[in-house]
Design a protein around this nucleic acid. Structure first.
Length: 707
RNA sequence: GCACCCUUAGCUCAGCUGGUUAGAGCGUUCGAUUCACAUUCGAAAGGUCUCAGGUUCAAAUCCUGAAGGGUGCACCA
């Protein structure tokens, strides 16, 4: 058979992604176009996405693959449309979370951070983190991320730390960050306080003890905290107890005579238990609030290790649960335990990373961010449309969250993080990085990771003077998972507005969780985890990317299966073979590209223009699932199954006009398909592009979007 | 308790501002082919759009209510 075609040898084999992808990525990287400064002049209007910096404490999972896919799609699309595109990558030291991971590693080695000097622990964690970070950067490359590595930033870089310090100092001066002794969630396991967001509620069954307190009987789940009681409270409207209010009760307790004031407070529910509550301000946030209202003392009886302290007589040194049992037993012996409701269910706060770590409410000095003024600023920005949520539902969730926010505890008693630049001397506080001099003691605490990552967009861009900040801030889109909406997105809005006076980003695009084919959460214990780097090696990155895009509605969880990924590997191969067919049936000389279209072929070109318009509109509206599906459909069902099929006879036609028109049609359909598909499947499209004999641009990555 | 989301073919989901016989992918069944395709092509079956009201000439789509599922926030000893 005659073969006048220009198809290179490689096309004779099926598409091999594993063999092709690394070479294509280095082709892109070497071009320099990931860096917007190297893009041609006509790329003027900025488009910027700040990459959510992955936690540098493990390898990438499929959720990371999803964000890379979505953001890379946007960036590649905008780059082809002539924007000055910056996708700024980074890595997150991830304070508390990394410390947990690293401590587990130490545990396996039979070591413990509590037996290590602070410096040494920090150094080892840093080495561990940097190693992971480097590894992850390689993985981001494998996923095709066209981000600007020359601007790669780490959350502990001096530039970031100094910006964070600047914000902290400004907030301190403005009275937005305060030092105060307030109730916090204390992890006895990890020896640090946590913010409200870093907690999770679990339902537990615990006995409810009815105790005799002099003339009263009251109910409590925590008899072991009785040594910290500073009052007994009733509801002001409760007729049963009215005569006692303001008086003092006195009775023999376990460790001597107990004298408690009786107070009245609306907080007490008459219908619960006996309508009498013991008030233990140091170990219950509600009781603390009552104590504040009534000027009651705060008596701490549980220490930071979760043991009763010296104020508890013979119970001192016992762990909470042990003490509870002992106290209950002794009370029973003394006839002070009236009854026990064994089936009492209530909610307990635990560490969000570890259900077994029940958080102990403790009152201790910490740094708090006054949230109300910041929340108001953020609310206003969303209200007046300076920030748009791509999925409307998150706007509602955003406003719901803003109501009833409590101040944010930003100090952590952990080593791994950015040290808080505060110095103490007697009652004085100074905010600065270096010691103010003799006699000043530095705050040993570090910042909540989210306090620093909340400043990520303007910190990475070099607020306030860098050209990048001026060009790219406010950034265009914040794309991340809805699971960190409160942790991160909200904080970025608040802190960005506070520090720079402008929103950190215009559009918020939130993606959902990647679940397995049955919509079950992926987890190691279930064995249903899809490892992105494993599947890309078998099916190709493009196949994974398409699988993550099709059927994935913004803000909703999606189902992913290996079968689905495989289907898009076949699609990559389909595209590959379409290209092979076209190149085999067109000349190496460009003559046919000058041919006139027959009326029929002109109609097909017209049809293609609708595909272009649809794809463009879908991407602009963030409906990637739609664009991906339509392109798949067009390429396979229309281009391959119909146009190519009918071409087989047309190309054999005796009439050169008809033949050449068809050759030009095929070639142009292929060129346009490659361009449209590039943001979705960058590798295979670029690999084919590289084999195209006639092209207006050597790299598809910067070819002009057909519009 | 408060809020948000979901409920459309066996499965996973589209269906944007209400408008011809409700779509896609996968799966299933039947047939063909190895002539660009470590395959592909053609065809078929399959839906009371969760339920009950309402608005409308017209509702999967808008409104009200209910049921089921999911998620977030809050939380009383």
């Amino acid at each position: 058979m005659e073969n006048r075609g220009s198809a290179p040898e490689e096309f004779l084999k099926p598409y091999d992604p594993a063999d092709t992808e690394p070479g294509i990525y280095s082709l892109w990287e070497q071009s320099g176009y990931f860096n917007p400064d190297n893009l041609p002049e006509e790329h003027k209007e900025p488009f910027c996405i700040i990459m959510p910096p992955p936690n540098a404490n493990g390898s990438l999972h499929v959720g990371h693959a999803l964000f890379v896919t979505l953001q890379d799609l946007l960036i590649r699309y905008k780059r082809m449309r002539g924007y000055k595109t910056l996708w700024l990558p980074g890595g997150d030291h991830a304070g508390f979370e990394t410390q947990i991971v690293f401590e587990k590693k130490l545990e396996k080695e039979g070591r413990s951070r509590f037996k290590m000097p602070r410096d040494e622990f920090y150094k080892e964690t840093l080495a561990f983190t940097l190693e992971n970070k480097k590894f992850m950067e390689g993985q981001l490359r494998e996923l095709g991320a066209s981000c600007d590595w020359s601007r790669n930033t780490f959350t502990l870089d001096p530039k970031i730390v100094s910006t964070v310090y600047g914000t902290f100092k400004k907030m301190f001066n403005d009275g937005l960050v305060v030092r105060g002794s307030r109730p916090v969630h204390w992890s006895t396991k990890y020896q640090t306080s946590l913010s409200d967001l870093e907690t999770k509620v679990v339902e537990r069954n615990d006995p409810l003890y009815y105790l005799k307190y002099g003339p009263f009987v009251l109910a409590t789940v925590r008899p072991e905290t009785k040594f910290g009681d500073t009052a007994v409270a009733v509801n002001p409207n409760d007729e049963r107890y009215k005569k006692w209010v303001g008086k003092e009760i006195e009775f023999e307790g376990l460790t001597g005579t107990v004298k408690l004031k009786v107070i009245a407070d609306e907080y007490v529910d008459q219908a619960f238990g006996t309508g009498v509550v013991k008030i233990t301000p140091a170990h219950d946030p509600n009781d603390f609030a009552v104590a504040q209202r009534h000027g009651l003392p705060v008596v701490e009886v549980i220490d930071k290790f979760g043991r009763l302290n010296e104020k508890c007589g013979k119970y001192a040194g016992m762990k909470i649960l042990e003490a509870r049992a002992a106290v209950a037993r002794d009370l029973e012996e003394k006839g002070m335990l009236v009854k026990v409701d064994e089936k009492y269910t209530h909610n307990v706060l635990v560490n969000y990373k570890s259900e077994h770590d029940i958080l102990e409410p403790r009152v201790m000095p910490q740094w708090f961010v006054k949230i109300k003024p910041l929340a108001d600023m953020a609310g206003k920005a969303v209200e007046d449309g300076r920030i748009t949520f791509v999925s409307e539902q998150y706007r509602k969730i955003f406003f719901h969250w803003l109501e009833g926010l409590r101040d944010w505890n930003i100090s952590r008693q952990i080593v791994w993080g950015i040290p808080i630049p505060a110095w103490f001397k007697d009652d004085e506080i100074k905010i600065q990085a270096e010691s103010p001099g003799e006699g000043w003691v530095q705050d040993p605490d570090t910042f909540d990771t989210w306090f620093s990552s909340g400043q990520w967009p303007f910190a990475t861009l070099g607020y306030p003077d860098s050209p990048d900040f001026k060009t790219y801030y406010p950034t265009s889109v914040m794309e991340t998972g809805y699971d960190i909406l409160f942790f991160w997105v909200m904080r970025m809005i608040m802190l960005g507005l506070y520090r720079t006076g402008e929103v950190p980003f215009r559009d918020v695009f939130l993606h959902g969780l990647v679940r397995d084919a049955q919509k079950q959460k992926m987890s190691k214990s279930k064995g249903n985890v899809i490892n992105p780097l494993e599947v890309t090696r078998v099916f190709g990155t493009d196949a994974l990317r398409m699988a993550l895009l099709v059927g994935n509605t913004p803000g909703m969880d999606m189902a992913l299966s290996e079968q689905k990924i495989k289907a898009y590997k076949l699609f990559s191969n389909k595209l590959w073979n379409v290209a092979r067919f076209v190149l085999e049936n067109t000349d190496a000389s460009a003559d046919f590209l000058k041919a006139e279209f027959t009326t029929y072929d002109a109609d097909l070109i017209n049809e293609m223009s609708y595909v272009i318009a649809d794809t463009t509109e879908s991407i602009d509206k963030y409906r990637f699932y739609l664009a991906a599906e339509n392109l798949y459909h067009f390429l396979w069902n229309r281009f391959a199954s119909e146009v190519i099929e009918e071409s087989k006879s047309i190309l054999k036609s005796e009439d050169p006009t008809e033949r050449q028109s068809r050759q030009r049609l095929l070639y142009e359909l292929l060129v346009t398909s490659l361009k449209l598909l590039h943001p979705f499947m960058p590798f295979v499209t670029e690999a084919i592009w590289q084999k195209m004999p006639h092209k207006d641009e050597p790299l598809l990555m910067v070819a002009k979007w057909p519009i």
